[in-house]
Design a protein around this nucleic acid. Structure first.
Lengths: 233, 233
DNA sequence: CGATGTTTTGAGAGGATTCAACCACAGTGG
DNA sequence: CCACTGTGGTTGAATCCTCTCAAAACATCG
């Protein structure tokens, strides 16, 4: 992790950002001064569950996975954050220790913003505040759906759903593969199952001509069938 | 459901409420004027998943269950709200349709407050806004824990955890039973399992002298053992 | 008293996990 | 250069947990 000299206009923390567009000129200046832009290699930790944090991150580039660690050390991935997303604000606002860890999945650049600034913005900028509550509410809605999903659907259904979701969220490479390339273990930790189960189901999907597999590269060749398995229509 | 003539000082939506204590006198006046205090019988619906809502509820008395409905109609209970809790604000703020339904579990009295007031408060009252984001962040943290729980623990472990949680959240009756009396199906819909599984596990717990059962009344007689099963220490 | 809803128990099937062994591959160091 | 090591991926077999289906006991209520 090293601080880079990326200049402001290259970052996505700008006046077009859905959240930061609500800032006044002075507020934006303040953030621009205070933010620390940093590069991170795959595997490095931004923050760790149980620790106090003193700021939050805006993702400029790359992918960060946010996860909780279960009792036996097994990760449960809560979300993958990409460009434009902000993470780590939860513990800043609720003044609790972090309830998740954040680790780099694809080499990333982040802007770190001190927590006091966030608190001041919530207090003083109504439009920013409203936008932020809307964001958190959406995350909450997503979490509630996920609870219902995990509680009521089979691993097979959830895996199909995740594949569709990864495509819609992160898009495709030139060669039609899912842009985000995850290990089998990471897939398992999203779905909430054992690594071996993911492997078995992926090869079932492959046999059924729903996907093609090339190492970590996955191509969805029958998206409709996957959606049907996932009950997405 | 009928509007009652309960006067302001009887409600918990008052100047001591963790959220509404941040209101100015004028704001508090406005809410007091606009709120609709209503009584609800067990079973009645406050709002329904998929519908638009135009306000939120502050629970004055009773218990409301908030749940999502899965594909096959099976409920997943997200939380039980009691006195002082507010529910239904999510869809007001995120301007989406409700992602959950709310139904009365124990005869209840609620104050309904129009959504525009909430939005205006978030915009204009920094302290209120900060307190609200903290609340939502806590709910989000709880949801994330629950995702990890359901994904990684057995039904047995989760049921033990829920029993402990229900005791800590709702307390005990005079006769040492859990104050909140749920059907087997409701218990199953919190844990995220089949009704029969809850019944079997409850009678296992009973055989192991961890609990006593009297219809819907449950007594925890070996809380430590339950906590151990739930991995709570 | 029937009628309806809830609780209970049993049996069977199926999904998912665990444990184990094995392969492929890349990086390391002698 | 090659053995060594570690990580990630794969497969098989056995086990176990959980669900589903079905039927019966029980409770509650008009």
């Amino acid at each position: 992790m090293k601080t880079s000299n990326i200049t402001e206009h290259e970052t996505c923390l700008n006046r077009n950002h859905f959240l930061f567009k609500h800032l006044s000129n002075e507020e934006f200046e303040l953030i621009s001064e205070q933010k620390q832009v940093t590069q991170h290699k795959r595997g490095s930790l931004l923050y760790k569950e149980g620790n106090r944090t003193n700021g939050f991150y805006c993702i400029e580039q790359g992918i960060i996975k946010v996860f909780k660690t279960g009792l036996d050390g097994k990760e449960q991935i809560i979300l993958f954050a990409k460009k434009g997303h902000i993470i780590g604000y939860r513990s800043v606002l609720s003044k609790e220790t972090a309830c998740t860890s954040a680790q780099v999945t694809e080499d990333a650049i982040t802007s770190f913003i001190p927590g006091e600034i966030l608190v001041q913005l919530v207090k003083n900028n109504g439009n920013f505040s409203l936008e932020l509550t809307q964001l958190i509410c959406k995350e909450l809605g997503y979490a509630n759906s996920y609870i219902t999903d995990i509680a009521q659907r089979t691993v097979r259904e959830r895996l199909a759903e995740i594949l569709i979701h990864l495509k819609e969220e992160f898009g495709l490479d030139k060669d039609q593969t899912l842009q985000i390339a995850l290990t089998r273990e990471e897939l398992a930790n999203i779905v909430g199952t054992a690594t071996e189960s993911v492997i078995r189901l992926l090869s079932e999907f492959k046999q059924d001509k729903l996907i093609e597999i090339n190492g970590r590269k996955i191509i969805l060749i029958n998206e409709n069938a996957l959606k049907k398995i996932a009950h997405l229509f």
